[in-house]
Every structure is written in C-alpha cells, then in structure tokens.
C-alpha cells in the first residue's frame, strides 16, 4: 500500500497533508510514527480509571496528532470525545466503539503501509 492508498483506506486527507508536510517521504515517516503514539492507550487507561482530566488531555493530544497527520476520520471522532471530556463528563461510552474501530482501521492500514 502506498501513501496515497493508505490515506484513502483511513478516510484521511492525503493532498492537504502532503501540502503541509512538503514531501511524501515526510508524510510517510510521520504517519508510521503514529504506531508508537501513546495517546490512544492513555485515553483508554484514563477512562478505565475514571480520571476525566487525564482522559481529556490524552484525547486532546490524540486529536491534535490526527489533525496534523490528516487522519481526518480519527480526528473527527477524537474531537467529539475531547469536547465531552472537556465539560468534565466521562460519558463517552457511545462514542468509544467508533473510536476503537477507526483506530483499528488506521493501525491495520499502517501495517500495510510499512510493508510497502
């Protein structure tokens, strides 16, 4: 899977990201780094512990990283969760399955991208 195909697979913004990052090589390098980004697991951990402050921070970081990388659909869902958590509510159960599915799609696509 090449970079363009990867962005298509995850419903991301290939053109926009390329124009901001200036080279496809850089886009790919940073997209691959997303595998090591801890904010998703930090979010899950914080929700399990009922720590709304930490959950907000993790969701916010996830949102920011996705926005930078042009991972649009993951960005949208993490934004929605960020806004719920910002208000101090832990009531994100309805949104979390979608986030997990979307995150899974991105991780699968990343593995395919890496093999390219």
């Amino acid at each position: 899977m090449n970079v363009k195909e990867f962005y298509a697979a995850i419903d991301g913004d290939y053109e926009g990201t390329l124009s901001r990052f200036l080279s496809e090589e850089r886009v790919k390098r940073f997209a691959l780094k997303f595998e090591q980004d801890p904010s998703f697991s930090q979010l899950c951990e914080a929700l399990k512990n009922g720590d709304v402050g930490e959950a907000f921070r993790a969701a916010h970081t996830l949102k920011g990283v996705c926005q930078n990388l042009g991972f649009d659909s993951l960005y949208r869902i993490s934004s929605e969760i960020t806004e719920i958590l910002r208000g101090g509510s832990l009531n994100v159960d309805q949104k979390m399955p979608a986030l997990k599915t979307c995150y899974g799609t991105v991780m699968t696509a990343l593995r395919a991208l890496k093999e390219d």
Binding site: F21, F30, K33, F34, Q36, T61, N68
Partner: peptide
C-alpha cells in the same frame, strides 16, 4: 509539546 509526535514533526 507533550506529544512526542508533534515535537518530532
């Protein structure tokens, strides 16, 4: 920045 990814970019 707390995100390593953001710092690296």
């Amino acid at each position: 920045d707390d995100s390593q990814m953001n710092r690296e970019i």
